[in-house]
Amino acid sequence: MQRAFVISPKDNVATALDELQPGSVRLLGEAASLQSEAAVKIPRGHKLALRDIADGEKIIKYEVVIGQATTDIRAGEWVHLHNIRSIYDERSSHLDIHTGAPKDTKYE
C-alpha cells in the first residue's frame, strides 16, 4: 500500500514516501497512527493533511510550526505553496506550485 511518514503525533501533516493516489495511505514512523486517506494525487516528498486545518491555523511538523494555512485545508489534501505560507519568508506566496520557481522577479 502507498505510504506516508509521520514524525510526531502532534503533527497535522505527513510526508508522502510514494506518489499518492486518492485512497488509503499507510502511515509509517515512530509516531504513526496506522492509516490515513489521500483525497487527491500528492507527489512523493510532499505533505498530506492528516486532519482538517482551518484558514490561518498553524501547520505542525516535527512538533514545530512550519507555516500557516492561507485557506481551509481538508484532511487528505495536498499541503504546499498553494495553501500554506511561511511566517518569515515574504516570497513564500510568490512561488510556482509545481516548480517552486519565483514569480515575483521580473525577467525584462
Binding site: 508522502a16 512523493r44 511538523k61 512550519i66 507555516g67 512561488l95
Partner: peptide, 15 residues
C-alpha cells in the same frame, strides 16, 4: 531555500 527544495516538497524555510 531554493526552487529545487520547493519542487521536492519542502514548502517553507521553517520546514
Amino acid at each position: 531555500i531554493s526552487p529545487g527544495n520547493f519542487a521536492g516538497g519542502l514548502s517553507t524555510i521553517e520546514e
